[in-house]
């Protein structure tokens, strides 16, 4: 079972890299949904392994929210905003990937003190969770478009969730429900925000917003 969780962790790392490389919005959403699916399977296996009932619930919640509801909302947003094609990144993909590899090495270093203490997981799992968070962060920094940044934010949350389930066998139930609620409300509010943005007289997108920053 532990090997299986490890395998899923490796899969998550691969998906994180794929998201970093993917520049079009629809495939990006598919990858995000896949990440949600892998996450819920891994939560389910941890639940099975430890026999903690609340983890089953959390696995079901993850599946519902991150593999189904959020991708549907995101697809709709992308279609309605009409931004699926043109692509813009600040750095080219190979450079981003190289930076990503550096980040992974860094996370393995960072996770050392934690992994040494943890009786719960093998050395790599927590490091991979850290790496997914940092890779999502890199994605957020290198993307210009608002919707991609939202997805990066959600991917970051996925990484954190994986860290929580694999290292501590999940946060207490109230906290997990609270976090899920925040994520859902957050996407909802961003949806409203992006529509307001698209409906505004000048039809703004994020690259225009950047220039609006004063000192």
């Amino acid at each position: 079972m532990l090997e299986f969780v490890n395998f899923l962790a490796a899969l998550l790392l691969l998906i994180a890299f794929a998201m970093l490389a993917q520049r079009r919005e629809f495939p990006l959403i598919n990858l995000f949904a896949l990440q949600g699916l892998v996450l819920s399977i891994s939560t389910f296996s941890v639940a099975f392994m430890t026999g903690k009932n609340h983890l089953y619930l959390s696995a079901a919640m993850t599946f519902l929210l991150k593999a189904i509801v959020l991708p549907v909302i995101l697809r709709r947003l992308v279609r309605r905003l009409g931004v699926q094609w043109s692509t813009e990144t600040l750095l080219n993909i190979p450079t981003t990937m190289l930076l990503g590899i550096v980040l992974v090495a860094f996370s393995f270093n960072l996770a050392n003190p934690v992994s040494r203490l943890a009786g719960t997981v093998t050395h790599g799992t927590f490091a991979i969770a850290t790496a997914s968070v940092l890779l999502a962060f890199l994605m957020m920094v290198t993307r210009k478009r608002a919707i991609s940044q939202v997805m990066a934010f959600l991917a970051m949350e996925n990484g954190l969730f994986f860290a929580a389930t694999s290292v501590t066998y999940g946060m207490p139930m109230v906290v997990e429900i609270g976090i899920a609620l925040d994520v859902l409300v957050g996407v909802f509010i961003l949806g409203i925000f992006l529509f307001q943005l698209a409906e505004s007289p000048d039809h703004l997108d994020l690259s225009h917003l950047e220039k609006m920053k004063a000192d």
């Binding site: 505004s200 225009h208 917003l209 609006m212 920053k213």
Partner: peptide
């Protein structure tokens, strides 16, 4: 709903 307002909210 001004340009600067959207930028600020996004930041």
């Amino acid at each position: 709903r001004t340009k600067a307002g959207f930028g600020a909210a996004w930041n």
